[in-house]
Design a protein around this nucleic acid. Sequence first.
DNA 1: TGAGCTATATATAAATA
DNA 2: TTATTTATATATAGCTC
Lengths: 219, 219
Amino acid sequence: MVNKKPAMGRQKIKIEKIAKKSHLQVTFSKRRAGLFKKASELSTLCGVDIAMIVFSPAQKAFSFGHPSVDSMMHRFLTGSPPPPPPSSGLHQLIETRRDANVHEQNMQLAQILNQLEAEKKNGEVLDQMRKVNRSQCCWEAPIEELELHELEQLRGALEELKKTVAKQVNNILIQSTSSLPFLAVNGVGEVGNLGTKLEIDNASAALHFNNFAYAQKIC
Amino acid sequence: MVNKKPAMGRQKIKIEKIAKKSHLQVTFSKRRAGLFKKASELSTLCGVDIAMIVFSPAQKAFSFGHPSVDSMMHRFLTGSPPPPPPSSGLHQLIETRRDANVHEQNMQLAQILNQLEAEKKNGEVLDQMRKVNRSQCCWEAPIEELELHELEQLRGALEELKKTVAKQVNNILIQSTSSLPFLAVNGVGEVGNLGTKLEIDNASAALHFNNFAYAQKIC
DNA sequence: TGAGCTATATATAAATA
DNA sequence: TTATTTATATATAGCTC
């Protein structure tokens, strides 16, 4: 109930790096939340897929993803069974290992390997990875000598792989998310334990989501 | 100067899928632009890296990326010369070819090759690509047989490559962009011509930015 | 498709708890 | 750090061109 109100209300600011660190941190948190909310809304309103990664000033990674949401979200909330056999990708194994301790890693590894089993059955991802790899072997050669044809081939293979992975990640994400279609995962930072920053309570969802986050980060 | 103003001004809407298709398209365009702007601001204000992909209702992909911008933006605006020899990546060649016609392709190819010359000199990207490629050869082997060590190695190589490419793209983007540090590129959709959707007037910037866009798409 | 316009809905900068 | 509260800066829904 203090009566001094020197400069209340939103002030205009210049879009340039914020100098004061504490201030920057606050702004980052608020705007990141706002950005994720906007993304969520766009995704919902237009029924489109969105994926994004934001690295905090402390180098932690926050990711948001929203595949063809509504139908799947509804299906999940109503408890309907997922039509296609869900399988996850490979990337999260690689990425997830970064911050996890050894035990966690083993747990994750076991989990991933199980998922790989299912994947191998359908074979889609592995096949595509091999295809990509074959194409990428071109990179060993001097770039100047690459045939346009080879480049086209490489691009196609990568694009195909990307689509498949994204699709699968999406499936799983939707199946695992309980409330808001966005969440934060930490992954890339030098410190931090996997899971401590999760804003969802389903570890599996985090793991899978991390997969997609990783998919973007490696490039 | 018509005098009928039945329902001017912003109306409140429910966050749910928009039924009317034309309406949805408009909302998508506006909100996508807004989202990118917000991302750009967050990136600038907090000096953080952001990457995001948005698929349009027609399945076109719009991507936004922003590595450590501020310092470079400032450097660009103040006209200071870029410290490291700017060079572009390789990906845009691959991606760019998609929609361009043959002539455009040749132009781009020539341009890229010139850039590759500079790159070869510094060698950074090529070396890293080769490193990644070496690691990725692991993919040929059954995933189950991969050593954790190898996975770690692969991840590291990819991450390193990503950073380098992103950095270089930033350099060039910043140097080429005149106003807003964001723009839209079309890339993944089945149709569309490269360039028709660019929201900047500098073809070079578009090309380079496309590089980063591609970097996100291939995963 | 975009590109404005207007009037409102929202996001948020600062101060504060 | 996280949550409120204000007062304002922005984003945008619905229209028109």
